[in-house]
Design a protein around this nucleic acid. Sequence first.
DNA 1: TCAAATATTGAACGCCGTGTAGTTTTCATA
DNA 2: TATGAAAACTACACGGCGTTCAATATTTGA
Lengths: 234, 234
Amino acid sequence: MTNTTPTRRQQLRLDTTAEIKRVALALLAEGGPDAISLRAIAREMRMTAGALYSYYGTRDELITALTSDMYTSLVDKTEAARDAHPAEAPAARLLAWGEAFRSWAVANPAGFRLVYGDPVRGYKVPEVGAAPEAASRACAGLTGLVAAAWPLQDQGPQEEYTWDDFDPGLADLIKTKFPDLPPGAVALALRVWGRMHGLVALEVYGHLGSQAKDPARLYRAELRDLARSLGLKD
Amino acid sequence: MTNTTPTRRQQLRLDTTAEIKRVALALLAEGGPDAISLRAIAREMRMTAGALYSYYGTRDELITALTSDMYTSLVDKTEAARDAHPAEAPAARLLAWGEAFRSWAVANPAGFRLVYGDPVRGYKVPEVGAAPEAASRACAGLTGLVAAAWPLQDQGPQEEYTWDDFDPGLADLIKTKFPDLPPGAVALALRVWGRMHGLVALEVYGHLGSQAKDPARLYRAELRDLARSLGLKD
DNA sequence: TCAAATATTGAACGCCGTGTAGTTTTCATA
DNA sequence: TATGAAAACTACACGGCGTTCAATATTTGA
């Protein structure tokens, strides 16, 4: 209830909570998702596995927290890369976003799996929380990129979309952020998302690297083609 | 060594081996990837877990076998769908391939995860095996689709690719199957693969369904756009 | 029929997540 | 400063997991 500085006890608790995540991330990076076990974390911290239960109600809860962190870190990276280019260069912003997406994924394959894979059995994306927030940011960011290209859009015969075709929360977010954008732009943004996701997912899961020597080059070509097909000239 | 009909004992062994896979697939379909446990399979078959070790050297070996089966089943489906259309309708063949890909994935999400994602906790993808064969078939199939569009290709300034840019096995396969195709077509095929993969992966892992009400429609639009961008008219 | 080959068991080992009961530590207040 | 409650932590138990291995049961061929 109080907004004062945390007591020593609260501070220690926060520190320990953070350390658990830090250790879990280290285990994740070094041994893959399966290396995250409460017992391993406890061992590393010279605690008992049971003691962790006063910080996270369950292992899945911890992994959810990790996933949120990862997602936020990813979105931070992509948005920063995008915003390094001015609004007058929408193509560069799109390419930067995509390249940052892939770079992050390649640098943090385990994190990518946490976010876009299926880390926890029976884990349902919670209604509220940091992960959905990051997902919304990602979606909105992509829609922004598409919005910059929307006036130039000529994707053949336009399909007709309604706001009802999308999640209400997402629809509201887009409507407030981009009042002039029709719902079809959201559909296009989701497709763009898929297009950026595809090659990266294949690569992270080892299906691309065994076929092509330079996945980065393929991805760059795909991004350029995407920008071109959106009507953005570089 | 002998090519005669198997002895009764050999037959039983084959039957049991097949039954193990069948039970594992049932568990997979019904309880998700984590439901595949040797103990559960053994329980279902009224055996001991240890007894399974005379059929599969390890749990991962069994999962590898399952993955191969799944991959083969997927490729069978896509090729059949594609071949339902004549060579004179390359656009239809491409669309059919893609739609079959998504249909299979949506119908067998667990199988899709086995093949393209995080299969089972603790499972490490082996370096070589039967799965690569299915992967080659898939790649070759896609390259065939791209080959049909290659003469029409005008993807802006052509990038220069060498056969060295790809896995030697894949390169050889393509060179014998499509002697006139330049290596750049393989790069395009891989990109097409990624494009078809992206939305499906997002959907199977639940990231798309929470945002859009009708992922199938999005995917169809993406496929049409893909065909269009390849120069294929429907 | 009998011995060799094969199939299966059952118990063990060391992991794991998860509870619970009891013990130690910390800290605000009397 | 002493005290009692809250918080942190340990110890242990339970069941599940993959895996190994000696012992046993079953089938097979001679």
